[in-house]
Simulated assay, not measured.
Amino acid sequence: MTDQLASERLAALGLELPAVAKPLAAYVPALAVGNQVWTSGQLPVREGKLIASGKLGGEVTPEQGVACAQQCALNAIAAAASIAGGIDKIKRIVKLVVFVASDPSFTAQPAVANGASELMGAVFGEAGAHVRSAFGVAVLPLDAPVELELIVEV
């Protein structure tokens, strides 16, 4: 498996990259800076709609939060790949920043963020190991439960 391309691993997981999400305001989905690509915040949007809304510890279960983090990760990979020249041009996942809209009593933001981190490992193998921050926040755009930023090396 170590010799597999990221595109092959993604297909083996039964996943495909979605179309790059259109920005909600005055920014671009991703930008190359030197040998890195940085993404804007990606929401858990699939086929143009949020897959869940609300706060973790409220309307959104931890399992739904993990699924949202995975969708955010797929959307971020798609945005990065669109600048890199394809998913197989991504050499390493450098950093994830995960924002989790949380009820004040919810403290499992790292567990929600693991949905994205584990997906990076499954798709990129050893090159998917990354540094990460996970934050609990009061609210996210469109009442999304999770938002994710990604930095990759190309």
Rank of each mutant, 00 (worst) to 15 (best):
M1P: 06
D3K: 11
Q4E: 14
Q4I: 00
S7M: 04
S7Y: 06
E8C: 04
E8S: 05
E8T: 09
A11W: 03
A12Q: 15
A12Y: 05
L13S: 09
G14H: 10
G14K: 09
L15V: 05
E16V: 05
L17I: 04
L17S: 08
P18N: 03
P18K: 03
A21I: 13
K22H: 14
P23E: 00
A25E: 13
A25Y: 14
Y27K: 03
Y27N: 05
V28L: 13
A30D: 06
A30R: 04
N35W: 05
V37N: 09
V37W: 11
W38S: 00
T39V: 01
T39S: 02
S40V: 00
G41C: 01
Q42G: 04
Q42D: 03
P44W: 01
P44V: 02
V45L: 12
V45G: 00
V45E: 11
V45M: 12
V45H: 03
K49M: 11
A52I: 03
A52Y: 06
S53W: 10
S53F: 14
G54K: 08
K55S: 15
L56D: 04
L56Q: 05
G57F: 12
E59F: 11
V60E: 09
T61Q: 05
P62E: 15
P62W: 08
P62Y: 10
E63W: 03
E63L: 14
Q64H: 02
G65N: 00
G65W: 01
V66A: 05
V66N: 02
A67R: 09
A69W: 06
A69T: 06
Q70M: 11
Q70F: 01
Q71L: 03
Q71D: 04
I77Q: 11
A80K: 13
S82G: 12
I83S: 09
A84V: 05
G85L: 10
G85E: 07
G85P: 04
G86E: 09
I87M: 15
I87Y: 06
D88E: 12
D88G: 09
D88K: 12
K89M: 13
I90G: 08
R92D: 14
I93W: 12
I93T: 10
V98W: 02
A101T: 07
S102F: 08
D103P: 04
D103R: 14
D103V: 08
S105V: 12
T107I: 13
T107C: 10
Q109F: 01
Q109V: 13
V112A: 01
A116D: 02
A116I: 01
V123C: 06
F124G: 05
F124A: 11
G125E: 10
E126C: 00
A127D: 14
G128P: 14
G128V: 09
A129C: 06
A129F: 15
H130V: 04
V131R: 14
V131H: 12
R132D: 10
S133P: 00
V139I: 07
V139M: 10
V139A: 15
L140R: 07
L142T: 07
L142D: 14
D143S: 13
P145I: 05
P145S: 11
L150P: 01
I151M: 13
V152H: 00
V152R: 06
V152L: 07
V154W: 07
